[in-house]
C-alpha cells in the first residue's frame, strides 16, 4: 500500500525516506498500512465467499454429485500440497521475524524458500489439472469423461425409458463401437450398455441392454471396461434439450480408484445410479482451486518483488511494512487452502 522508496534502511529519526508526509509517526504509518491490508484480506475472503456459497448450496442439495465427483481427486496430492503451503507459511512468518531482527540474508533466503514452495504447489496443481483435462473431467459443457476416466469408470449408459414415459436417448454413433469393445463382457447382462433411441422409440438392440436398463445395476464383475468418451457422457448440454431431460440416470459405475489394480473390491464402489450433473462438482472444483491458484501466482509475484527490494536494501528493522503485508497476503492464500482441502478432497 503506502510504500515509498528508501535507499538506506536505517532512516533518520526526523525524516526517514520511507515516511510519508501525511503520517505523524512510523507506528501510525505501520498500523495504517496493516489495517489497510487486513481490510483488503477481508475483501478477498468475501470474493471467495461466492464460490464457497455455490459449493455449500450444491453440496447440501446434491450430496451424491459431490461424493461421486470427489473420487476423482487425489487425496495424496491434496495433502502434500497442504503441507507445502503450511511449510511456506512457516518460512514466510519466519522471514518477517528475520526482517524485524535485521537478518537480511536469512530473510531473503526464507522469502526465496517461500517462493519455491509456491512454485511446487503450482507444479502439483499442474499435474492434477492435466490429469483432469486428460480425463475430460471438466466443468459444464466441457465435462466429457474420457481416457483415464474411462478406465476407472465401469460405464453403463442406462436408459430409463419406462419411467419417463417415452425414450429420449439419442442416436449415438459410438454405440456400435462401444459394443465392440465392451460387448463381450457386457454380454453377461451386467456390463456396459447403451440404449440408443432414434426418434424417441427405445430400440432395445440386444439382451444386454434390456438388463443394462436397470440403472442401479451393481458392478458385480468389476472389470474395467473401456468405453469411448462420447458414449460415457453424452454432452450434457445436448442431453438436456430433450424432454424431460436431465433426469435420466447416467449409469456410470466406477469400480476402483485405478482400473488396473487388483480389481476386486479395492477403492470406491459406487452403488446406485450415477448422479446427474457431476460436472457442477468439477465446475466448483476448478472455480475454487483456479481462483486460489491465481492468488498463489499473485502471491509469488509479490514474494519476488519483496526479494528484489530486499536485495536493494530497502528494508530495516524500522521499516519492513511491505514484507509484513506481502506475507499477510501469503498467509491468507494458505488460510483459504486450509478450507479448500477438506471441502474438496475429503468428502464422503
Amino acid at each position: 500500500m503506502s510504500k515509498k522508496h528508501s535507499s538506506d534502511g536505517a532512516g533518520h529519526a526526523e525524516h526517514p525516506k520511507w515516511m510519508q508526509h501525511h503520517f505523524d509517526t512510523p507506528s501510525q504509518q505501520f498500523a495504517s498500512s496493516k489495517m489497510g491490508m487486513w481490510l483488503f484480506l477481508a475483501t478477498e475472503v468475501l470474493l471467495f465467499a461466492g464460490l464457497f456459497c455455490a459449493y455449500t448450496v450444491y453440496r447440501a442439495n446434491h450430496m451424491d454429485m459431490f461424493v461421486f465427483g470427489h473420487q476423482f481427486l487425489d487425496v495424496k496430492w491434496g495433502a502434500i500440497n497442504t503441507c507445502v503451503l503450511l511449510f511456506s507459511s512457516l518460512t514466510a512468518a519466519w522471514s518477517v521475524r528475520a526482517a524485524q531482527l535485521g537478518q537480511k540474508g536469512l530473510m531473503i533466503a526464507l522469502l526465496f524458500i517461500t517462493l519455491l514452495c509456491g512454485g511446487a504447489f503450482m507444479a502439483i496443481k499442474y499435474v492434477e489439472y492435466s490429469h483432469k483435462i486428460h480425463d475430460g473431467l471438466l466443468w459444464g459443457t466441457k465435462y466429457k469423461p474420457a481416457g483415464h476416466a474411462a478406465e476407472v469408470i465401469h460405464g453403463e449408459e442406462a436408459h430409463a425409458a419406462g419411467e419417463l414415459g417415452g425414450a429420449h436417448g439419442r442416436v449415438d454413433e459410438g454405440h456400435t463401437e462401444a459394443e465392440q469393445v465392451a460387448g463381450i463382457e457386457a454380454a453377461h447382462g451386467e456390463g456396459a450398455a447403451e440404449a440408443p433411441a432414434a426418434g424417441g422409440d427405445a430400440l432395445a438392440t440386444d439382451g444386454a441392454q434390456a438388463a443394462g436398463a436397470q440403472a442401479a445395476a451393481p458392478a458385480a464383475q468389476g472389470e474395467g471396461v473401456e468405453l469411448p468418451a462420447d458414449v460415457l457422457a453424452i454432452d450434457v448440454a445436448e442431453r438436456s434439450t430433450t424432454l424431460p431431460a436431465a433426469i435420466g440416470p447416467r449409469g456410470l459405475v466406477p469400480v476402483a480408484e485405478e482400473g488396473h489394480d487388483d480389481g476386486h473390491g479395492a477403492g470406491h464402489h459406487w452403488e446406485g445410479p450415477i448422479p446427474d450433473n457431476v460436472h457442477i462438482f468439477f465446475g466448483i472444483y476448478f472455480g475454487m482451486t483456479g481462483l486460489h491458484g491465481i492468488h498463489v501466482l499473485i502471491g509469488m509475484i509479490i514474494l519476488g518483488w519483496l526479494i528484489y527490494r530486499a536485495l536493494k536494501n530497502d528494508f530495516s528493522p524500522e521499516y519492513f511494512t511491505p514484507v509484513d503485508l506481502g506475507v499477510l497476503y501469503w498467509h491468507l492464500v494458505d488460510l483459504i487452502w486450509i478450507f479448500l482441502f477438506p471441502l474438496l478432497y475429503l468428502i464422503g
Binding site: L164, T242, L243, P244, A245, A246, I247
Partner: peptide, 8 residues
Amino acid sequence: YEGPAPAV
C-alpha cells in the same frame, strides 16, 4: 431435477 423438471 429430481422430479420431471421441465426441459430447457
